[in-house]
Write a protein that binds this DNA or RNA. Structure first.
Length: 502
RNA sequence: GCCGCCUUAGCUCAGUUGGUUAGAGCGCUAGAUUGUGGAUCUAGAGGUCCCCCGUUCAAUUCGGGGAGGCGGUACCA
């Protein structure tokens, strides 16, 4: 029984064209991160499951969302599902020797055993920056600025994105203010999740999820949080105000006005009264606001958005989300909203899992794969990367000569290859065309007798062919090719390449 | 995971009310053009009609199950 040649579900092959775009993206991001003073760190893709903290509660088995297996000694191992958990492990392990605060960046593939969807894969790349060991809001403010600078460095125009920020403590405060029992964790999570879906389902959808539940277009039913109608109306009122505030901010900033973010905080302060968590949240939000405002980043690049929830468990303070705000058409002409392309926040308890010592930390991660998908829809298809000069093989007896020529080109720093297949000249030309070669080197018996080589410029040839309708005519004209003494091979090829890359 | 839709050539898709040789366009290979890619014409190759079980004289077509894909939803620490 032969196996079927098939790729694993949720995974994908990435070809040369996309890889070169990815390289460009990664080096751009790296440049920005290094400018902010972060230092590189690479950790393994595989970790012990307990180090990642992903055992199911009260069970001897890892969470279903992570790819896991048992090693020879029956220890559970898992593929990393983000870059933050391995970082916490690394910091805990090397705490004594690291400079504190420790500021590092990392990029790499992470893995999630979840249902794949459009633009959602089970292996994808993240580019992460974290500051460990600082409880200053300045560290959080930097994350927002870093995010904005990075998106702009990648070519996303100001106004086409926004780094939204909020604070987990504020949400906790709202829950307590809404008289939800603090010990009722399950219900709190349901409420958070419902609010997190605001941008997708709208106020009505969230209202349904806070109450009895919601039936979607396919007829499937989602159980709701079952809150009392009075409590629900409080939430909806708050979210409606948050949306209204966002619209106001957008409108004022679009017309070049100055948005008074402090009045939003004042209004919240009034509505919460004296509540410990809410006070902390508002103080932190204000510090962040002052810092971002002073740096000039509160001009629409970053903004307080009270509907941001994210990070349902481990975030402990400020949370950020990078969102693309412009609509984009996909290959089928449908408008897609890409939404979130990155996020982060403060997590003060992750290292303490290992050491017992509370280590404040904050970070931000860009979803590289997702962002690249968005950018490629915006920028259209990139050119295929330039291929090698192809040395044609006309006489099989002279392979040694052809290969010598090829080496000559390579030694001169020119990407080149001799045709290694077995087909005739016509097929070799097609091959060079498909490889996107700048030119081919032809030496048949005529040229060899004269000590020459013929160089055919494929780029010029393509242009010439566009103007000529009759095949015989253009073949006889032999456009865009020249014969030169073999000694000048490298120089002439250099000229052609320079002409097309210049 | 749950709900719905889908699966025919390398790709995009027709089609068979259950019946002999299942089609198109594009792509691919070759010829027209003894040594020249992209135009044109001609020819050719390429299919377990997703898989298994059932109904039937006969299944790519009908029924059941499965797998894969798409969309929604849940999960996304």
């Amino acid at each position: 029984m032969r196996p079927e040649a098939r790729i694993a579900k949720g995974f994908r092959d990435i070809e040369a064209q996309e890889l070169s775009g990815l390289d460009d993206m990664l080096s751009t991001i790296r440049e920005v991160y290094e400018r902010y003073g972060f230092v590189a760190l690479e950790t393994p893709a595989l970790e012990y499951t307990d180090a990642l903290g992903k055992f199911l509660p009260d069970q001897d088995r890892p969470n279903a969302g992570v790819f896991s297996f048992q090693d020879d000694d029956e220890q559970w191992m898992s593929l990393r599902y983000d870059l933050t958990a391995p970082l916490a492990r690394y910091v805990a392990q090397n705490y004594q020797t690291l400079p504190k605060p420790f500021r590092r960046y990392a990029f790499g593939n992470v893995y999630r055993n979840e249902k794949p969807g459009p633009g959602r894969f089970r292996q994808f790349m993240q580019f992460d920056a974290d500051t460990i060991g600082s409880d200053s809001m300045a560290a959080d403010a930097e994350m927002c600025m870093l995010a904005a600078d990075t998106l702009e460095a990648l070519g996303i125009k100001r106004g086409d994105y926004v780094i939204k920020l909020c604070n987990r403590k504020l949400l906790d405060g709202i829950l307590e203010g809404a008289a939800i029992d603090a010990s009722d964790l399950a219900n709190r999570v349901v409420v958070f999740r419902a609010i997190d879906k605001l941008d997708r389902l709208g106020l009505d959808g969230v209202e349904a999820l806070l109450g009895k539940g919601r039936r979607d277009e396919s007829g499937d039913f989602t159980e709701g949080a079952g809150l009392h109608p009075v409590v629900i109306s409080k939430f909806i009122g708050f979210l409606r105000a948050a949306l209204h505030e966002n619209a106001e901010r957008t409108r004022i900033q679009a017309s070049g006005g100055r948005y008074e973010w402090r009045s939003l905080l004042d209004a919240l302060r009034g509505s919460f009264g004296h509540h410990k968590l809410a006070d902390e949240a508002l103080t932190e939000l204000e510090s962040l606001g002052v810092l971002l405002d002073a740096a000039g980043y509160f001009d629409g690049r970053t903004a307080i958005d009270l509907s941001v929830v994210r990070g349902l468990e481990y975030y402990t303070g400020p949370v950020f989300e990078a969102e693309l705000t412009f609509p984009v058409k996909d290959g089928d002409g449908n408008t897609v909203r890409f939404g979130s392309v990155g996020g982060g926040g403060r997590y003060d308890d992750l290292v303490a899992r290992f050491t017992g010592q509370k280590v404040p930390a904050t970070g931000f991660a860009i979803g590289v794969s997702r962002l690249q998908a968005a950018l490629s829809l915006v920028n259209g298809r990139k050119d295929t990367p330039p291929g090698p000069v192809v040395v044609l093989v006309l006489d099989k007896d002279n392979v040694a000569d052809y290969q010598k020529m090829t080496q000559e080109l390579r030694n001169a720093g020119i990407s080149a290859e001799m045709y290694l297949g077995s087909s005739g000249m016509k097929a070799q030309m097609k091959y060079a065309d498909k490889r996107n070669s700048p030119c081919v080197i032809i030496q048949g018996s005529d040229e060899r007798a004269k000590g020459e080589v013929t160089i055919k410029d494929l780029v010029e040839g393509a242009k010439a062919a566009a103007a000529i309708k009759d095949n015989k005519e253009w073949k006889e004209a032999r456009p865009a090719q020249l014969s030169v003494p073999q000694a000048q091979l490298v120089d002439e090829v250099r000229k052609i390449i320079a002409r097309h890359r210049g």
